[in-house]
C-alpha cells in the first residue's frame, strides 16, 4: 500500500512536472510567434507604403491614358453617353437582335491594320481639342 502511494505520487509529480514544462514551452513558442507576427506586420506596413507609392506611380493618369490608347478601343464619353436616370438604361437585346459583343480591347492581333487607324482617330480627337 505504501509502495503504491509512493509510486503514485512519483508518477503524478513527474507527469505534472512534464506538463508544466511543456505548457511553459508552448507559451514561450506562442509569445515568439506573436513577436514575429508583430515584426511581420511592421514589415508589411513598410512594404505597403512602398507599394502604395508604386501603385500611384503606375496608375498616374498620364500612363493610364497612354495604355488606354494602346490597348483599348475606348474613347472619352460625351454627354449623351452619360445616363443620369437609371430607368433610361435599355435592356440587353436577346436572340437574333443581339449583335456580337465588340469588347473593349483593340483587335490588334486579328487585324493588324486596325491599330494605326485607331491612332489616327485619336490624333483627330486631339486635333479637335487643341
Amino acid at each position: 500500500m505504501r509502495r503504491m502511494i509512493t509510486i503514485c505520487a512519483a508518477v503524478t509529480a513527474l507527469a505534472s512536472g512534464a506538463a508544466v514544462l511543456q505548457l511553459k514551452l508552448a507559451v514561450q513558442e506562442k509569445a515568439e510567434a506573436v513577436e514575429a507576427l508583430a515584426q511581420k506586420i511592421h514589415e508589411d506596413r513598410e512594404a505597403i507604403r512602398v507599394l502604395e507609392a508604386e501603385w500611384a506611380f503606375l496608375t498616374t493618369p498620364r500612363s493610364l491614358q497612354e495604355k488606354s490608347i494602346r490597348f483599348l478601343a475606348l474613347m472619352p464619353p460625351n454627354a449623351e453617353q452619360v445616363v443620369t436616370d437609371i430607368t433610361r438604361i435599355p435592356f440587353r437585346p436577346k436572340g437574333v437582335e443581339a449583335g456580337e459583343d465588340p469588347g473593349v480591347l483593340l483587335p490588334t492581333r486579328a487585324k493588324p491594320e486596325e491599330k494605326p487607324k485607331n491612332d489616327k482617330a485619336d490624333e483627330d480627337k486631339k486635333g479637335q481639342s487643341l
Partner: peptide
C-alpha cells in the same frame, strides 16, 4: 511527501 505535495499543488495552480 511534503515536497511532492507542494509540487502537486503548484502544478495544479499553474495549470
Amino acid at each position: 511527501f511534503a515536497a511532492f505535495a507542494v509540487m502537486v499543488i503548484r502544478t495544479v495552480e499553474l495549470g
